[in-house]
Amino acid sequence: MTMPAIQVSQLSKTYVVPEREAGLSAAFKSLIHRKTREVKAVDQISFTVDEGEIVGFLGPNGAGKTTSLKMLSGLLYPTSGEAHVLGHIPSKRHRDFLSDITLVMGQRNQLVWDIPVIDSLERNRAVYRVPRSDYQSTIDELTELLDLGELLQKPVRNLSLGERMKCEIAAALLHRPSVLFLDEPTIGLDVTMQRRIREFISAYNREHGAAVLLTSHYMADVEALCDRVIVIHHGRVLFDGPLTDLVARFSPHKTIQIELDTESADLSEYGDVVEQEGARYKISVDKAVTPEVTGRLLADLPVIDLTVEDPPIENVIEQVFSSENAES
């Protein structure tokens, strides 16, 4: 039996934040005596990630995603609970542990701003004690997968956002870590660049069997990469399972898109008309009756085109959070 790459049980993080009142006197008072209050950023989460798995970590801003990633990479000390990554306790920040993981977060972590990218890579090679022979083959591999080419010779400050991200990722993976924590790896990039990075993550995962835990606001990333998602909200795990299950569980509706030869049809008897654009209509219907409604539409109306879709994953996620809010 192999041990999971990441194992988390009952992990919590509580921040103590100072509370302030407005006004000058209050500010001076607070210099002497601070009122504080506790904020639960992560509240008893448990999950495991196996070797070779890519797991999407979803949730709105402030849900506790970044805090969790920081705890798993050893930057933050958990308030309670346990985490094991590759058999190590992250907060001990053991050298072997740090040498076998990577955290990509934001754009200015790995690279030295003023010098060519290749020099930063060389620096990382020394720090991570990557043998020269491995180093060259890794560089070649990364250059090909990420299409780095001439970028390596340019100073970082002359790179565009997307180019910088590619180089940042290359630097973060130079030591071929077995566990990758990626916090918004595609944020702010254009669509082509997003796809490129996505393909790269997927290829790296395939070739090295690395475990990947990634957060992203772009559902395209999640759909393309993750077989499994963990949804957290207010620091708690709301859902943990395959992406398809998430849709099935939280979205009781399907969307029927239909094109007719008329722009004035009244389709309200079949379901909620959520959108109409000329002769194109979108109707939201209950999942259970979808086949029946589809049959009726085709029988009753002069249909030119008809498709049945799951609602966009964004909407499903939104629904997950709003249902949680309604409950609490």
């Binding site: 030295v112 701003w113 003023d114 010098i115 020099d119 930063s120 060389e122 620096r123 090679r125 020394a126 720090v127 004690r129 100073p155």
Partner: peptide
Amino acid sequence: LSIYLAYLKTSIAVMFQYR
């Protein structure tokens, strides 16, 4: 030693940019 050499190389390169 090789780590120090790599560090020295980058820090001198950076400082040279800001001469």
